[in-house]
């Protein structure tokens, strides 16, 4: 219990540094620190599958973000209605926190979940699927429709990136063709 508070403080500190620092590269690295904190928190919460996935995803996400930030100039606009914007943002966040606090009163206490559905999985999952890892059994046997939907979303996102980035379709008629494509 104590280590959860420590890890959450660590992550919030990393997130605040990532938001407030001026240099974009430092900001991206602070996000990496937050992601590693998330990975450790998954380990404390007894979710080793999520910890492995979060670790490797964090590395790839960091590489992509560094690719986007490197070799670009950093124009920072400080003009504008500074006081008005900050006030509106903080008011919205306080409203959000208040409403979510009311909603949290109905959530079961931490450490004592209801587990109405999961009880069936825990009792019969090993006998019916034969997989020792129950998370694998849930995502690929009981809830395989979810995984199918996830695959569809991933396919759509990859196609979106390929369509946004590629140069082939932007050629006009009179334009000279370049040597390389994609």
């Amino acid at each position: 219990m104590f280590e959860l508070y420590f890890l959450f403080s660590f992550m919030i500190a990393g997130a605040i540094i990532a938001v407030t620092v001026k240099d974009l590269l430092s900001s991206v690295i602070a996000v990496g620190v937050t992601g590693l904190g998330v990975c450790l928190t998954f380990l404390v919460l007894k979710a080793p599958d999520l910890a492995i996935t979060q670790l490797v995803v964090e590395v790839l996400c960091l590489i992509i973000l560094i690719r986007a930030t490197i070799r670009t100039d950093l124009p920072f606009a400080t003009t504008g209605r500074w006081f008005f914007n900050t006030f509106i943002t903080l008011a919205f966040i306080i409203l959000f926190l208040g409403i979510s606090y009311i909603a949290l009163l109905d959530v079961p206490a931490f450490g004592y979940p209801i587990m109405k559905v999961a009880r069936v999985y825990l009792e019969q999952g090993f006998i019916r699927t034969g997989a020792a890892n129950l998370v694998s059994a849930v995502i690929l046997d009981y809830r395989a429709y979810d995984t199918l939907g996830e695959a569809t979303i991933l396919f759509t996102a990859v196609m979106g990136v390929l369509a946004v980035i590629r140069k082939k379709g932007r050629k006009k008629i009179g334009e000279i063709e370049e040597g390389q494509d994609e």
Partner: peptide, 16 residues
């Protein structure tokens, strides 16, 4: 299916 891991983590590791 017998230890932590699975298709998602393994796919990203191969990408790396």
């Amino acid at each position: 299916h017998v230890s932590p891991g699975g298709g998602f983590a393994g796919g990203v590791i191969i990408t790396l």
